[in-house]
Design a protein around this nucleic acid. Structure first.
Length: 439
DNA sequence: TGTAATGATTTGCT
DNA sequence: AGCAAATCATTACA
């Protein structure tokens, strides 16, 4: 160990002394290369260096006064500059190499990412341009939604501006900190230069130290940018989360959707075209239509009893429109087949006893087996048909009591979805095809 | 103000 | 990809 250090030292002495020989005055500028190191004394130089090293090594064992005196003596030693250079080199090659790897990260990709994001979000960069970019992003996100999102836009913009302002004030503060940082760096540099007179501190090391200080300070900037980015992300997620800006559909839109649902109760799965048609009519998106049907199906199935009244209303409505336009009906408002299409389906239910809530005398337990469903269905259909006929002139309440939900299979889903016509109701007349195209 | 209704999202399945 | 089911978050209403 010591031996190795010694060899290293020896090998560097030549370089150092060669480089500094002129300054030290121990050699001539034109002096011959390595062998001139030893000067006239030959082995005397080595002895000299050995003495110096010995003094350095033992300096910590001495008292403070002694050490001060020794330090002064060493400082004035004619070999000092050369030795200083060598020690610096050794330090470079040992200490610095250990942590040299972490030093080279000049562009800092993370900081660049943050900068890019802040620029894209309109927090950093030009005052108004950024805002428009953010607004454009917001508009793109809002999609084809209603015009009333302008209020939310301004809300978003206001909050973004708030973040922007905070960011800029913080950035200003950071600038002040950076000034202080420069001042501090100057102090450190001066101090190190001062110390370099007695310690092996090379300019390179000073430079490195300055770099460390700057990195420490720029980490503050990084934190500022990071927290700003987080704030923007939170704002965005709040703004983008549709659940937070949910608006109930218009009454008309709900009616259109309900009409379709109850007139296709046997198979309430609108095709892509039907969804588009419904979306256009309701002024909502196709996915909103899908959502609506998904919610409706699951909620209807969960609690059919609750939806009976609604089902009756819409079933009656479609029946009325059907009779008024197609049927010869003697009474224009006769709810002739209130659930023509709806009851014809094979809508399955988890609890069969709920199926016949509106049918007096029907006991769900008797029909709980899925195997008899078609049979039940025809019974229900005929029953419903007869009863609806008999109550054709009654009020809405009568219709409510008579409504019969479609049958559901034991597995809890709409069965036979692809062939709704296979389970035809006695008065399928207007049917699903009609509703599909007319509405 | 509590609760039901409702639109949207997430998760898991096929 | 489309759906069912569970869940979330907001709105409407008594």
């Amino acid at each position: 160990m010591m031996d190795e250090q010694g060899r290293l030292l020896q090998s560097h002495i030549g370089v150092g002394m060669g480089a500094l020989s002129g300054a030290v005055g121990m050699g001539h500028p034109h002096m011959g290369p390595p062998d001139g190191v030893d000067g006239g004394g030959g082995g005397g130089g080595k002895q000299d260096i050995g003495d110096i090293l010995q003094q350095i090594m033992t300096i910590t064992d001495q008292s403070l006064d002694e050490a001060q005196a020794r330090k002064h003596a060493l400082n004035c030693h004619r070999m000092k500059p050369a030795l200083f250079s060598v020690l610096c080199e050794i330090k470079e090659k040992t200490v610095l190499s250990i942590r040299g790897a972490q030093d080279d990260d000049p562009p800092d990709p993370q900081l660049m990412r943050l900068d890019n994001m802040l620029l894209a979000e309109g927090v950093a960069g030009p005052e108004k341009g950024g805002g428009s970019a953010a607004a454009a992003a917001a508009a793109a996100v809002a999609g084809g939604a209603n015009a009333d999102n302008s209020a939310e836009h301004s809300d978003y913009r206001a909050k973004l501006a708030q973040i922007r302002q905070i960011y800029h004030t913080e950035l200003e503060k950071y600038e002040q900190v950076r000034m202080a940082c420069n001042e501090f760096t100057t102090h450190v540099m001066n101090l190190l230069r001062e110390q370099s007179r007695t310690r092996p501190i090379s300019p390179k090391e000073i430079e490195r130290m300055v770099g460390i200080i700057h990195r420490k300070f720029s980490s503050i900037q990084m934190q500022l940018k990071q927290s700003t980015c987080e704030a923007v992300m939170i704002l965005r997620s709040r703004f983008l989360d549709a659940r937070r800006k949910r608006r109930n559909f218009s009454k008309q839109a709900t009616e259109i959707l309900n009409e379709y649902f109850y007139s296709h109760l046997s198979n309430p799965y609108p095709s892509e075209e039907a969804k588009e048609e419904l979306a256009k009519k309701c002024g909502i998106t196709v996915s909103q239509v899908s959502n609506w049907f998904g919610n409706k199906r699951i909620r209807y199935k969960k609690n059919i009893g609750k939806f009976q009244e609604e089902a009756n209303i819409y079933a009656a409505r479609t029946a009325v429109s059907a009779t008024s336009s197609v049927h010869h009906g003697s009474q224009a408002n006769s709810p002739n087949t209130p659930t023509s299409a709806g009851s014809s389906g094979s809508f399955s239910m988890p609890n069969p006893s709920d199926m016949f809530l509106g049918i007096p005398g029907m006991n769900g337990d008797s029909y709980s087996s899925s195997g008899v469903t078609p049979n039940i269905q025809s019974q229900v259909d005929s029953l419903r048909h007869v009863m609806s006929q008999s109550s054709a002139y009654g009020d809405g309440m009568a219709a409510n009591q008579l409504y019969s939900p479609p049958a559901m299979s034991a597995n809890g889903g709409w069965q036979d979805a692809t062939t709704p016509s296979s389970v035809t109701s006695p008065t399928e007349g207007p049917g699903s095809v009609h509703s599909d195209t007319s509405n």
